[in-house]
Simulated scan of single mutants.
Amino acid sequence: MPPPPLRGTLRPLPLALPTMRTIFMPPGRIHVWQWVLLTLGAGAMLTAQAGWVELHRLFKPLAMVAALLAVCAPRFAPRSARRLRARHWLLAALAFSLAGDVCLMLDGLFIPGLVAFLCAHVCYIRLFALDAPWLPRRTPLVACLLLGAGVYSMLWGHLPVELRLPVAAYVLVIALMAAQAVGRALVRASRAARCVAYGALLFMLSDTLLAVDRFVHPLAWAGLGVLGTYYAAQWLIVHGMLQTSQQA
């Protein structure tokens, strides 16, 4: 005997599975100054790889100037007091990054450059904590700290004695920055927050490549690898935060 017919209508479960676009594509429209940042960043990357020192010294700082101008664009004017504070912290992080870029281009200014980028990461940590709790997820915190410890242990035997403590402090701060960004993305569950988190992780990768190239073994593709991940990181952070500024 056949089974009795089912009553009612079967409805598919409302599965909201993420697509490749929602995971990897940045949200929102891209401002013209963001395109300029990408162009100048590519110029800095290629001139560094080719060894064109004078052109590199032109492209590298101008790329971060474009990032600052993108943040100051009227289209992204903050809609609330909290977003205004966020813009200030983002501008501070980019300004310190610009100072770090200039210092690292010049001989004998590695420590000032390291300090400038450490200050940039402190600003990013404060920025990412404006709309999310402090270190809201344990898993990314542990993962970033273990990653930082692994990188530092690799560098330890190659670092000059006077750099061991400053580099240790820097590794700790950038690990906390990345952990805060990833935890924020898990809490906010938005494409803009994920965009920022990807940028923070790329920043860790860029600094790891830079440290390996400088202290462990020169990389033949350092100009492409270090600066390619660096400008991708800054672009993703800027883009994600600018899109967030439009949401509140």
Rank of each mutant, 00 (worst) to 15 (best):
W235F: 15
I237Q: 03
H121S: 03
V32M: 08
L10S: 11
V53W: 12
I237D: 02
A220S: 13
R138T: 14
F96M: 14
L242C: 02
L13K: 06
F117I: 04
L227V: 02
H158W: 09
C123Y: 11
V171C: 09
L91E: 11
F203K: 01
A233H: 07
C123F: 13
C123T: 02
M154D: 07
T19D: 05
H88Y: 12
A181S: 10
L6K: 12
L37T: 10
F128R: 00
L146D: 04
M241S: 06
W89I: 05
G28L: 04
S80G: 09
A93W: 05
M177G: 03
L219S: 06
P133I: 03
I125R: 00
V196F: 07
L109P: 01
G228E: 04
T9Q: 10
A50R: 11
L227F: 12
A48R: 14
Y198C: 01
A211E: 06
Y231D: 11
G28W: 13
L90Q: 07
T244D: 07
A169S: 06
E162Q: 12
L58S: 08
G150H: 05
Y170N: 02
G113N: 09
L242D: 08
A16R: 14
R83S: 12
F203M: 08
W235C: 02
S80A: 10
L176I: 02
R85F: 06
A179N: 02
Y231W: 11
Y152E: 11
T9H: 07
T39E: 08
R191T: 15
P136R: 04
L40S: 06
I23A: 08
M45P: 00
Y198H: 04
G150W: 08
V216F: 06
L68H: 09
L127G: 01
K60R: 14
W52A: 15
H121K: 01
L68N: 03
M45K: 02
P136Q: 03
V187C: 03
T22M: 08
A66W: 04
L91V: 15
W156E: 12
L236Y: 08
P3L: 13
F110Y: 09
I237P: 01
M177N: 05
A70T: 06
V226E: 05
L209H: 06
G228F: 15
P5E: 13
Y231V: 12
R126D: 00
Q234N: 07
C103Y: 06
P160G: 10
M25D: 08
L109V: 07
A197F: 01
F203I: 01
Y231H: 10
T19S: 14
A197Q: 00
G100S: 07
V161S: 10
A169P: 00
A233W: 04
A193D: 13
L163D: 00
V151P: 03
W221K: 00
I174F: 07
L172R: 01
Q234Y: 05
D131H: 10
T39G: 12
L40A: 07
A200L: 06
P18T: 01
V182R: 00
V167D: 08
R82Y: 00
Y170S: 03
A44E: 13
A99L: 15
H239Q: 11
D101C: 08
S97Q: 07
L155V: 02
V196R: 01
P160C: 10
